[in-house]
């Protein structure tokens, strides 16, 4: 027994240097670290796109979830602390840009090079028994009695909360904001009659809308949206053009690599990402789940995330929910 152990140890020592041998990218499996929980929107999205990407590479992409910290800071720090060689991807979403001002991340977001798959657009809805049939009726009622209508969205500084704030700013109405732990609990609260208005994404709400449990009043994007069994949901911009000054604030789900990853590795990733985005699998999945695909990379996606970062960071700062001033991180005002 002892001989076997010693022999195997010698083998281990002898093989260790070999493990460093270099080959062209990618020569071993890639790990995608998703900073949000398994089963959530970001997780599913990253799993789908990486599954398609690995078909165009010789290696596998393993997806793991590393959650926790402030706005996913534990997973982001972990992914960033790995070698910047392109073998570690970081699965993230627009909400991660708040990690900086909330004190979980000491860098500006542009240390990442992002790849945006897409996101599901937000919309504003009311409970089925609410008297408001159109967005105008709701907004006018809210204007008449400010802060009387209860509106649910996930907690302070989430994308849905920002959308609700944008609606208030763009239309001049004021709601009584009740925060929930996520989209599902806020929708449940609308079902029990605890709140009247709810803002979540179409992907999260579609089953309730189609089941007649909630009534969609307006999409918070410039275009209307076609939903099966329901017809067309008009854009809220049609009735209140002022919204275009504040909206759309869209989800941007995808993954990122540190910006200083070698050129050749990044080129391979961009190339396979583009190929994967063009597959039928991804397109069908997006359609079935009410996602709008983006496919932006490089400078384009950087512009998207810069805009999101400045919007989120300054809004949180003004709400008093940020611990670090956006100025100290060098984030410009929107």
């Amino acid at each position: 027994m002892k001989k076997i152990i010693i022999a195997s140890l010698v083998l281990v020592m002898a093989l260790a240097p070999l493990a460093w041998a270099k080959k062209s990218f990618p020569s071993r499996n890639i790990t995608a670290v998703v900073v949000w929980g398994a089963g959530g929107g970001t997780d599913t999205c990253v799993r789908i796109i990486t599954a398609e990407m690995q078909k165009f590479m010789d290696v596998n992409i393993n997806v793991i979830n590393k959650t926790g910290g402030v706005a996913g800071s534990v997973g982001m720090s972990h992914a960033y602390s790995q070698k910047h060689d392109g073998y570690t991807l970081c699965g993230l979403s627009e909400s991660n840009v708040t990690a900086g001002v909330q004190g979980g991340w000491d860098k500006k977001f542009d240390v990442w090079d992002t790849f945006i798959v897409g996101g599901s657009p937000d919309l504003i809805s009311v409970t089925a028994d609410a008297p408001y049939q159109t967005i105008q009726e709701l907004i006018e009622a809210a204007k008449k009695n400010p802060k009387s209508i209860k509106a649910a969205a996930s907690g302070a500084g989430s994308i849905h909360h920002l959308n609700l704030l944008a609606v208030e700013n763009g239309s001049g109405a004021q709601f009584h904001f009740i925060p929930y732990k996520g989209s599902a609990p806020s929708q449940n609260a609308a079902m029990t009659g605890e709140v009247t208005v709810v803002v979540t994404s179409l992907a999260e709400q579609q089953q309730l809308l189609r089941g007649g449990k909630l009534r969609a009043l307006g999409m918070l994007i410039p275009d209307s949206f076609e939903v099966a069994d329901l017809g067309t949901i008009p854009s809220a911009f049609d009735a209140y053009p002022g919204l275009s000054k504040y909206l759309p604030i869209s989800q941007a789900i995808g993954f990122a690599v540190p910006a200083d990853v070698p050129r050749e590795a990044k080129d391979v990733l961009v190339d396979t990402f583009n190929k994967a985005m063009a597959t039928d699998k991804v397109k069908t999945w997006a359609k079935e789940n009410y996602y709008l695909l983006s496919g932006k990379t490089g400078a384009e996606s950087k512009a998207v995330f810069d805009a999101l970062e400045s919007n989120f960071a300054w809004t949180l700062w003004e709400l008093g929910a940020a611990t670090v001033s956006p100025e100290t991180l060098g984030i410009p005002k929107p």
Partner: peptide, 9 residues
């Protein structure tokens, strides 16, 4: 402590 921010698991 940043690890405590997301609460006790």
């Amino acid at each position: 402590i940043p690890d405590l921010e997301s609460g006790i698991e």
